[in-house]
Design a protein around this nucleic acid. Structure first.
Lengths: 118, 118
DNA sequence: GATCAATATTGACAGATGTCGATGTGTGGG
DNA sequence: CCCACACATCGACATCTGTCAATATTGATC
C-alpha cells in the first residue's frame, strides 16, 4: 500500500521536520517523535547512551554496561532493548559479547528538532 | 549546607553538562535531565510546546490550546502543568486568561546536551 | 556434547502516567 | 450580588513502566 510506504519510522520522521519552535508540529509527527524522547527520558537510559557514546570506538559491551550500574542484568538488558527498538542504539554481536553503538545522526536530528534554529 | 547549594534544578543542570556523547553523564546529572525529557516525551506535550513556540509573540492562551486538541480541558491543563513544572513553559495570567510561553534557552540547552558537538 | 559465561526473555508486581467527569477557584460584566 | 467564563484541582480508572528473580538461549571451551 502507498499508505505504508508513506509511513515513516520514528527515526526517519525526526529528520524531516522543521524545528519545534518554527511551526506547529503535526499530530502524526508528534506521535512519531515522542517514542524517541520517551526512550531517552530515563536516567538509566540517558547514562547508557552517554557511556556507549563516550566509549572508545563509539561502542560498548553489555558486560561493561552492567558493571556501571547497581541494577540487575535483566534490567540493563531491558533498557538496552528499549533504546535499540527506538532506533537510538545499534546492536552487533561478536562471539559471546554484544556491543551497542549510538546512532549519532538520530541524536543530532532530535537535537535539531527540539533545539530549533538557535 | 553547601550540599544543597550545589544541588541544581533540572533546568539549571541541563545547561552545565558536556554533551552526552563526550563523556559519561554522571548519575545525578542524569536524574536531573531525565524529567525534562520526560516532560517533552509525550505527543500532546510536544505539540503543545510547538504550538506555543510557533505562536505570535511566543506565547499562547490556554483557550486556543484547548481548541487544538480533541482532549478534555482538564487533560490539556494537566499537560501544561507538567511542562510548566518541568521548567519548559512560563506561565502568566492576564485577566481571565492564562498564557504560556516556551523557555527557549532550556530547549536549546537540552538540544546541546543530546546533540553533542555535531 | 557437557559445561560455563554472556545476554535475552518471561512473569510478576509496585508505582507512575494519561485520560475523563465532576467540582473548585478566581475574574469580569450586568 | 450573581452569573458566566477560563482555568485548575480532585478522584477514579485503565494502561504503561521499571525492576527483579527465575529461566531460556546462544556461543566458546574442554
Amino acid at each position: 500500500m502507498s499508505k505504508s510506504q508513506l509511513t515513516l519510522t520514528p527515526v526517519e520522521t525526526v529528520a524531516c521536520c522543521s524545528p519545534l519552535v518554527r511551526e506547529p508540529l503535526a499530530a502524526d509527527r508528534a506521535e512519531s517523535v515522542a517514542p524517541l524522547l520517551k526512550a531517552l527520558a530515563d536516567p538509566v537510559r540517558l547514562r547508557l547512551v552517554s557511556i556507549v557514546a563516550a566509549s572508545e570506538g563509539g561502542e560498548a559491551c553489555v558486560c561493561d554496561l552492567n558493571d556501571a550500574f547497581d541494577l540487575s542484568q535483566p534490567t540493563i538488558s531491558h533498557h538496552l532493548k528499549v533504546l535499540h527498538e527506538a532506533g537510538l542504539l545499534d546492536r552487533s554481536k561478536r562471539g559471546v559479547w554484544v556491543y551497542y553503538a549510538v546512532r549519532r545522526e538520530v541524536l543530532a536530528d532530535l537535537a535539531a528538532l527540539i533545539g530549533g534554529g538557535a
